[in-house]
């Protein structure tokens, strides 16, 4: 059993208090919403135990700072997700056409794209968006570069054009 190292964005003990309360409130709301049982002491007690366990694990992993980033980023995702969804739908149809083409016109290539995002969460969102879009898969995120495997030239050009990068950047630092 090993403790994870503290992330660079670790907070002091004073700052984590409100975040942990927000985490408890969110988890309690989700539990009550999904279980739909409000009069069984056993079930409610088990829910309380689960919430306590999750909070303990989050503290132990030193990942409370990411929870903070999640609360500030959450509302901004609302404008990003529809755009990402439409990109995914378009890319899905392109890849489906390639697969159903009898000639199978693929031209796989490996490209390296810069990752200018500041926070870990921003980088993860960018890499996950690339993987989620069919036709491109992020292979390795190391330092400030991201290795991307693309199925076709068009897919690679789509990543290199940098529109997704700009949108993730804007979401990370609005102004």
């Amino acid at each position: 059993m090993y403790d994870l190292p503290p992330s660079p964005q670790s907070l002091s003990g004073k700052e984590t208090g409100p975040l942990l309360i927000a985490l408890v409130v969110t988890l309690s709301a989700l539990w009550l919403l999904w279980s739909g049982i409000y009069d069984n002491t056993l079930i409610l007690g088990l829910g309380a135990c689960s919430i306590a366990f999750v909070v303990w694990m989050t503290r132990r992993m030193h990942r409370v700072a990411e929870a903070k980033a999640g609360y500030t980023l959450g509302p901004r995702l609302i404008t990003y997700l529809p755009w990402l969804g439409w990109e995914i739908v378009k890319a899905n149809f392109q890849v489906a056409r390639i697969i159903l083409d009898p000639k199978l016109p693929i031209s796989p290539r490996l490209i390296r794209v810069p990752v200018p995002q500041q926070t870990d969460l921003g980088r993860v969102i960018y890499a996950n968006s690339i993987t989620l879009t069919p036709g491109t898969v992020s292979l390795d995120l190391r330092g400030d570069g991201l290795l991307v495997h693309a199925l076709t030239h068009e897919a690679a050009e789509g990543v290199l054009s940098g529109e997704m990068e700009r949108r993730v950047n804007r979401m990370e630092r609005p102004s």
């Binding site: 059993m1 090993y2 403790d3 994870l4 190292p5 190391r142």
Partner: peptide
């Protein structure tokens, strides 16, 4: 499955 993160902390 239980990699020692202290030894490979640099990633």
């Amino acid at each position: 499955l239980a990699r020692d993160h202290r030894r490979h902390a640099s990633g």
